[in-house]
Nucleic acid binder design. Structure first.
Length: 606
RNA sequence: GCCCCUGUAGUUCAAUGGAUAGAACAACGGUUUCCUAAACCGUCGAUCCGGGUUCGAUUCCCGGCGGGGGUACCA
């Protein structure tokens, strides 16, 4: 049992004995003691003053006395500062804790069992008319990390993606390609499929705006011109043909979407994300219509004179919401209902999490109510993991204004920057092959990008300045990766024989002496290691992967100080040396697992 | 108009209602015969404004001001 929870229980017992009150666990606030005071754990005694009817200092004193008397882990050197009781823990306890961490490769994780609830996480959900940009990158990284975090908290996780593969936007690209493409393909052009299609989407928009401009010049009202421009009319005709299953349009649609998927797959692979089940809007939107009709029959919704179908949510404090247009075609909401239906058929979902930007907050508020009405048991408690936008120094990213940060470009830049960075440090990695150097650059470059995004609280908007490249120093992914690589280097030297577990020390049993003398820094490190459990739990409870990033950073900072001030392999006292090797091994293991939750790899050397 | 989110050093980010609000970047200064200096140490520097609740407020509540988003036939 970990130390903090042991002490918590002890405090509850002491309060009961002293004051005859059974306090809830939450009232026992144990925090890490600040560095300037002696001790490792601090009890905040203010909540107990009403029971003790004594001054903070006196209350702290008597609780401290009782703890020392009752709990062997607490030694007598406790001190009281105002309302804070600083406890000193028996060093042997820390060594025991370290051993248990080091021998448990899944330390901090709750195992998934047959009985675990099933959580489905939807993320990514791209449109197939343009390549992925930085906003998608944030979505994908968050979705992936969140899935890992949920699994680490003992949930069965199904990762899913709903691809928006139909609609007017696709028709625009198709039309432009027909008009100006000359049969160009990814192969003939050498372009990635999603970029090729994106270029035609841009081309459509360019010509379309020219047409509108001309019509306005001829005296037409701008709104009217936007509707009457020949190109947009043609695109609409194409959409109608698509819905009518026109073979030619469908064939073209299929071909172009395949190009896009091939492009997306490359980007997904580079990002290191994947899905267990992919849904396509073209296959779900009709299901949504059915479900809406069903709701209409049951009287949840109503039809207006023009034929459109609506949900009245004024009782819930919201507005009325359109579910089917007057021409019978479906809207965004209809599709989400249809997708939900299919998902529910496919999986016994206990909880559904949608990773979608915060501009959709209202949409998901409504969706939750509608799904609940339609009888989805998880509808009411669906989680909209609502993340903030990535902003550029000049504001939002806008495709039309050409201010998007392309995902593929960014990835390539990060990797080549990382390569450059390590090339500047020539003496370090001598003897490695070109492939190894490139692989390290990939790991480090992606680590920098991923950490940059994931360390920020997902709910908040974040800023990305393309002028300033993402850092490799300071509070960054490479900082953490570097610490890992240094530890692995130590471990290789400590135990060079593969049969001893030269590369993987996790399974190696180092028998540590309980009476090894420990420094404050070493105890503090063990304490930080223990904190991994809490970080994982909090990340799960709050749906907040940034907890893990912040945790890793704190741990690594602590270790780097230790590394600087103490020698591991050159320590002459064997007890201490073994202890420090074990401590380093445990830190590297927790770094690897923590970064793994974020989808960030760690290199053996860099 | 109405609804939601948000406001912390020059900049980018932290802080379950707890001790003197932490980091990083930038700036300036220091550390290498020593396990990887992508490291370590130091200096400078911040809670938008006004009330309230509390032993204690960056955190919770109310009112301003600033920023972002949504708002019924776009997704």
């Amino acid at each position: 049992m970990e130390i903090t929870s042991k002490i918590t229980t002890a405090v509850q017992a002491v309060i009961d004995e002293l004051y005859g009150v059974q306090v809830p666990e939450k009232m026992v606030q144990l925090q890490e003691t600040r560095a300037e005071f002696e001790g490792q754990l601090t009890l905040v005694v203010f909540p107990f003053l009403k029971m003790s009817k004594k001054a903070p200092e006196a209350t702290a004193q008597e609780i401290g006395d009782q703890l020392v008397a009752k709990v062997p882990e607490v030694i007598s050197k406790f001190n009281v500062i105002k309302g804070f009781l600083n406890l000193v823990i028996n060093p042997a306890q820390w060594i025991e804790l370290l051993e248990s961490i080091q021998q448990n490769p899944t330390f901090g994780f709750t195992p998934v069992t047959e009985e675990s609830p099933l959580v489905m996480i939807e993320y990514s959900s791209p449109n197939t008319n343009k390549p992925l940009h930085l906003g998608h990158v944030r979505n994908n990284l968050l979705g992936w990390a969140l899935a890992n975090v949920m699994q680490a908290n003992g949930n069965k996780v199904v990762k899913t993606n709903i691809v928006n593969d139909r609609g007017i936007h696709i028709c625009k690209s198709m039309l432009a390609w027909l008009k100006w493409g000359n049969g160009e393909t990814p192969d003939t052009s050498g372009k990635k499929g999603d970029h090729l299609i994106g270029d035609y989407y841009v081309a459509f928009d360019k010509h379309y705006r020219e047409e509108v401009k001309e019509l306005v010049a001829q005296g037409m009202d701008e709104e009217q011109a936007k509707q009457d421009a020949p190109l947009i009319k043609e695109a609409h005709e194409m959409l109608v043909k698509w819905e009518q299953n026109d073979p030619e349009v469908r064939a073209l649609w299929k071909k172009m979407n395949e190009w896009v998927y091939a492009g997306f797959d490359e980007t997904y692979k580079a990002l290191g994300v994947s899905f267990d089940k992919i849904y396509y809007e073209s296959e779900t939107y009709l299901e949504g219509k059915e479900k809406v009709e069903e709701g209409l029959q049951k009287g949840f919704f109503y039809r207006r004179e023009d034929g459109s179908v609506w949900a009245d949510l004024t009782k819930e404090g919201l507005d009325e919401k359109l579910l089917l247009r007057s021409d019978g075609t479906s809207v965004y909401m209809t599709q989400d209902i249809g997708t939900a239906k299919l998902r529910f058929q496919d999986y016994p979902i206990d909880k559904m999490i949608y990773v979608v930007g915060n501009e959709q907050n209202y949409h998901f508020q409504v969706l939750s109510i509608l799904l609940d009405k339609l009888g989805f048991k998880w509808g009411k408690d669906l989680v909209h993991f609502s993340y903030g936008m990535v902003e550029l120094p000049n504001g939002k990213m806008k495709s039309r204004e050409g201010t998007v940060v392309d995902a593929d470009d960014l990835i390539a830049t990060m990797i080549s920057d990382a390569r450059q960075m390590s090339a500047d440090k020539v003496n370090k990695l001598e003897g490695i092959t070109e492939e190894e150097a490139q692989e390290i650059a990939r790991i480090v470059g992606m680590g920098a990008l991923k950490y940059f995004i994931l360390k920020v609280d997902a709910r908040k908007n974040m800023l990305f300045n393309p002028e300033e490249s993402i850092d490799f120093n300071g509070n960054t992914g490479p900082f953490i990766q570097y610490t890992y690589a240094r530890i692995r280097s130590i471990l290789r030297k400590a135990s060079p024989s593969p049969s001893q577990g030269g590369v993987n020390l996790a399974g190696l049993k180092l028998s540590l002496s309980k009476d090894t003398e420990l420094s404050d820094k070493e105890i503090s490190l063990i304490q930080h290691l223990q904190g991994f459990q809490a970080a994982v739990k909090q990340a799960g409870a709050d749906y907040n992967p940034s907890c893990i990033a912040n945790y890793c950073y704190e741990l690594v900072k602590e270790y780097n100080q230790f590394y600087h001030d103490f020698s591991v392999l050159r320590e002459e006292d064997e007890k201490k040396r073994l202890f420090r090797i074990a401590l380093s091994a445990a830190v590297s293991q927790v770094i690897k697992n923590g970064m793994g939750l974020l989808g960030i790899e760690v290199p053996e050397r860099m």
